[in-house]
Simulated scan of single mutants.
Amino acid sequence: MPIKIPDDLPARRQLEAEGVNIMRERDAVRQDIRPLRIGLLNLMPNKISTETQIARLVGATPLQIELTLVRITNYVARNTPVTHMASFYRAWEQVRAERFDGFIITGAPVEHLAFEDVQYWDELRHILDWTQSHVHHCLTICWAAQAALWHFHGIPKHDLSAKAFGIFNHGNLAPASPYLRGFSDDVLMPVSRWTEVRRDDIPQGRGINVLLEGEETGLGLVDDPSCRSLHMFNHLEYDTNSLGDEYFRDLANAPSMPLPRNYFPDDDSSCRPANRWRSAAHLLFGNWINEIYQTTPFNVNDIGMIPRQLVG
């Protein structure tokens, strides 16, 4: 089954060229089927690229997906045209009465700030609380994963002495997890962050399970069943060139910027990198969507009515 996105969203042309099955809005309304409602709170600077990355992955499943793009209500995006935001995004205040089968919150380039100093922190806190009553399952990415663990569990983030930047191996610590179904014993993940969450800070008795962890970059994926959330600290959703684009952008301002590790062939930035994480990205998002489909209420209005899982 296809993914339903706005007919004139820029991501549509790219996804259609890749063979992703896209449904037109006028056709979707004629089908007697309830699609899974997935919301995307996009905090990344290049919103159009992130929309495409996420839509590609959620649209590759055999289920019909309705993707809703969401923005912070009172924050103006600086790197995306106002017309794009007005045409395709809805403020969270406009959707807060609605319910979603799944909700994705992306990372944001605000790691150098304390959570409480982020301009939209208060609204994000409300959104995180709202996911507990209006969302069946949540997926947080990078900074948003750190923010969710701080908000719900008081788990701090720690500054790194140098940026964790490149492609790093992560061990599969929970092959029986439904989210890691079909995963290899080792998983390559793109990493791009200045902070980390540490295993030793995870409180006991909360039911938080580490699923993927790397020797060099630490926690990669954590299951948080008490909050019906999956927290990914890295970027399986990234395109082949995403890390390279970040590198060349930063190089313009910092000539000594080190290369992303294990990324360019022979550490030659003129060579095209190989995508060695694409299959893991599709597996993770496919497994996440499948778990939502298996457990979400048939009646969308019943989402959030099931109490949070009691643990400990």
Rank of each mutant, 00 (worst) to 15 (best):
P255T: 07
I38V: 00
R278H: 11
A145P: 06
E98S: 04
A144G: 03
A274M: 04
E116N: 06
N79D: 15
D7P: 15
L173N: 09
C271D: 09
R78S: 09
H170L: 07
P203C: 15
R24W: 06
Q146I: 12
S184E: 08
L57T: 06
M85R: 14
V20W: 10
A145K: 14
Q31H: 13
E111T: 13
R26I: 14
R193I: 12
Y263E: 02
L284G: 06
D8S: 15
E93Y: 05
T106P: 04
N275I: 01
N42Y: 12
D159H: 13
E66W: 13
N79E: 14
L212R: 08
G244S: 10
D159W: 13
F298Q: 12
N299E: 10
H151G: 02
N169H: 08
Q53K: 12
G59D: 07
R99T: 01
V135R: 04
S184L: 09
R34K: 12
E123H: 01
A176H: 15
S229A: 01
A252F: 10
L219P: 00
A164H: 13
T217P: 01
Q31W: 11
R30M: 12
Y238S: 03
L283C: 06
L212M: 04
R96E: 05
P175W: 14
E25N: 11
T295C: 09
D7R: 07
E98L: 00
D8M: 14
M44P: 10
C138N: 00
A162C: 07
I54Y: 10
I167V: 05
I3Q: 12
I65P: 08
D245A: 13
T61D: 09
L212Y: 09
P10F: 02
G59E: 06
L212P: 00
R276P: 05
Y293S: 05
M305E: 10
L36C: 02
L9H: 15
R199V: 15
T217K: 04
A60W: 10
E98Y: 05
F165M: 03
I33T: 13
D122P: 00
V95C: 08
